[in-house]
């Protein structure tokens, strides 16, 4: 602080509290709605304070699914989302880290070609090649499978760049020393490089877990069978059906369940999250 300006400090706190409150407001209302019964919701406007049907509502959506909607019980959808998030984040980390290792520590023909190929994936988000990618997945008979949900999404330029950047900052002497001691490339990778990369891996994991959990368009395209629905895509199906039936209380319980896992990851791994976010963009 350069100087003491009490009014400005007060104003700062005021704006920050107001900002935090506005940011939290929709989630609070959603949570409140998820604790009431259908009668209260039918009466018109959403109440402002929590009701007493929280446990009943959450039990219903988790194990029976929203009655009258075209979606299965939420517990299964959450499991699918978890499988998808973990497979995508772990898969991305593994294939990116070995690709970055090859590009930094080896000299081989086509090295730069591979590098640029990986770079170009940045310019081809799923959204711009929806139909042909769907066709490829269909031709490979990967519709309605976990491989179809995850494998096409695990190529990642950002993760490869992050690890490449990190490897470039590792002192050359380490590789030299390892070579003199007779360690081969894989030995060096496992015993020296990988332990050093731990914090970057954790940061990457947080970002990619959120990315995987929050996928929407992809599961929408790839899944037609209920047993493969993920929660984020399942919820919009419920919303479209529910408006007529006014089952908002249970749908809002699903919304809360859909955001709890990634929000918990962000809050409890805040340091890694910020690090991952800022470093992937370098």
């Amino acid at each position: 602080m350069v100087e003491n300006r009490p009014y400005l400090t007060f104003l700062s706190h005021f704006i920050l509290i107001l900002g935090a409150a506005i940011v939290a407001f929709p989630v609070y209302v959603t949570f409140v709605a998820s604790t009431h019964d259908q009668q209260t919701m039918l009466a018109g406007v959403t109440p402002f304070f929590p009701g007493e049907h929280m446990i009943a509502n959450y039990k219903e959506v988790l194990f029976e699914g929203v009655v009258g909607s075209r979606a299965p019980p939420v517990a299964g959808m959450m499991l699918n989302s978890l499988i998808m998030a973990l497979a995508i984040s772990i898969g991305k980390i593994i294939i990116s880290i070995i690709a970055a290792y090859a590009i930094v520590y080896f000299k081989f023909p086509l090295r730069m070609t591979f590098f640029w190929m990986i770079f170009i994936t940045l310019m081809l988000p799923v959204e711009v090649r929806i139909l042909p990618t769907y066709k490829v997945v269909a031709d490979l008979a990967m519709l309605d499978t976990y491989t179809g949900l995850t494998i096409p999404l695990i190529a990642s330029a950002t993760a490869t760049f992050l690890f490449r950047q990190f490897f470039l900052s590792v002192p050359d002497e380490l590789a030299e020393a390892a070579r003199i001691d007779g360690a081969g490339p894989m030995r060096f990778f496992w015993d020296i490089l990988l332990p050093l990369t731990r914090t970057s891996i954790a940061a990457m994991f947080v970002i990619q877990f959120i990315y995987g959990w929050n996928q929407y368009l992809w599961p929408l395209l790839i899944t037609t069978k209920e047993e493969y629905y993920t929660i984020v895509m399942g919820i919009s199906r419920m919303v479209n059906v529910v408006d007529a039936a006014a089952r908002w209380n249970v749908v809002m319980a699903v919304a809360i369940l859909a955001m709890i896992p990634p929000v918990i990851v962000v809050i409890f791994m805040q340091r890694q999250f910020v690090k991952g976010l800022v470093e992937t963009e370098k």
Binding site: A99, A102, M117, V128, R129, V136, A155, T160
Partner: peptide, 20 residues
């Protein structure tokens, strides 16, 4: 080491983009 990344890039990124 680069094979998995490149394979996925070719099959699910380059080829569909070319098709488009």
């Amino acid at each position: 080491l680069v094979a998995p990344q490149i394979a996925i890039t070719l099959i699910f990124f380059m080829w569909p983009a070319y098709q488009a």
